[in-house]
Design a protein around this nucleic acid. Structure first.
Length: 292
DNA sequence: TTCCAGGTAGCCG
DNA sequence: CGGCTACATGGA
């Protein structure tokens, strides 16, 4: 008998959370639930929405199957950012910004996952100049070849994300079958740096956004965009505002900002989204990908 | 064939 | 500093 946790949630939608480009290891099942792995635990998540709001507020009961009850407070509550009040954040972002209100409407149930810092670093190095389906394949390949086998869950084998110690010892030749392209050497070099500086990411997490950004951009293969993704998804810096091709597209289409004027986009975000820039960015990202 | 994908390192002025 | 380009890979 599979263990499971059930918990009441609101402002919570699995499609919005797992299909907004923040994570790469969750797969949608036939029944609309998602199976995946985080912090070395493979689980399945399904939602039963409250009937009285017809799903519009995205409140209901979340079931995490395969998870031990004790893991809720230790892992899942924090991973899913359940203690944060997204309703007030949505009001803050959307109450005098019609464009943002529209974006929020399409991704009402987004939550910023608190992912493992090392995994986030490597994953977003893989993501550069790459598309999401292929990013997923590359990461799956890394895990299968270099991650610890966690065992089978619902008929599938699961592998933990490889440690930087393991990756730091791999050669470009070892990584060749994974088809990471020119990113392979970035991954090896950055894994070496992180394996050597064990507390670097932890310290960055406890530092200000600016200090974290400086540390991250010092890693090989980590530029402004990737650093902001790591800061947001791995280090819990919610003011971080990653600007990628989609963000350039959506801010041009919806705010009329020039597609090449990244500085204007950054300034717009700082001024209007402030400490919740990262959450605003996720609503915009999800929204433009729905439209496209 | 060419273009594109959650960009960055290296180089040049 | 800011601007330019090569870079692996696979799908459209």
């Amino acid at each position: 008998m599979e263990e499971k946790i059930t918990v009441k949630v609101k402002d919570f939608n699995l499609d919005h959370i797992f299909d907004c480009g923040q994570c790469f290891r969750w797969e949608k099942e036939q029944d609309g639930s998602y199976s995946g792995i985080a912090y070395g635990n493979a689980v399945n998540m399904s939602m039963e929405y409250d009937s009285d709001n017809a799903g519009e507020q995205y409140s209901g009961t979340l079931t995490i199957s395969g998870a031990k009850e004790a893991s809720f407070n230790k892992i899942w509550k924090e991973y899913l950012d359940l203690d944060r009040d997204y309703e007030s954040i949505k009001y803050f972002l959307g109450n005098n910004d019609k464009v943002m209100a529209e974006a929020i409407a399409s991704g009402q149930g987004i939550r910023i996952l608190r992912q493992e810092p090392c995994e986030t670093v490597i994953s977003f190095i893989v993501s550069q100049n790459n598309n999401i389906p292929r990013i997923k394949k590359c990461i799956e390949g890394l895990c299968r070849n270099f991650g610890e086998n966690i065992g089978s869950f619902r008929g599938r084998e699961y592998y933990a994300f490889p440690t930087v110690d393991t990756l730091s010892q791999a050669t470009e030749n070892d990584l060749a079958p994974i088809k990471l392209g020119y990113r392979a050497k970035y991954i090896i070099e950055t894994s070496k740096a992180l394996a050597k500086d064990k507390n670097g990411l932890k310290q960055a997490m406890d530092s200000s956004y600016e200090e974290a950004y400086e540390y991250l951009t010092g890693l090989c293969g980590v530029g402004p965009k990737v650093a902001n993704c790591i800061a947001l998804f791995g280090l819990n810096k919610l003011e971080s505002f990653p600007i990628d091709v989609w963000m350039r597209r959506v801010m041009n289409r919806m705010y009329g900002i020039d597609e090449n004027n990244m500085k204007a986009m950054k300034e717009y975000a700082e001024k209007n989204y402030g400490e919740y820039g990262g959450i605003a960015q996720q609503y915009l990202f999800y929204h433009i990908r729905q439209l496209d």
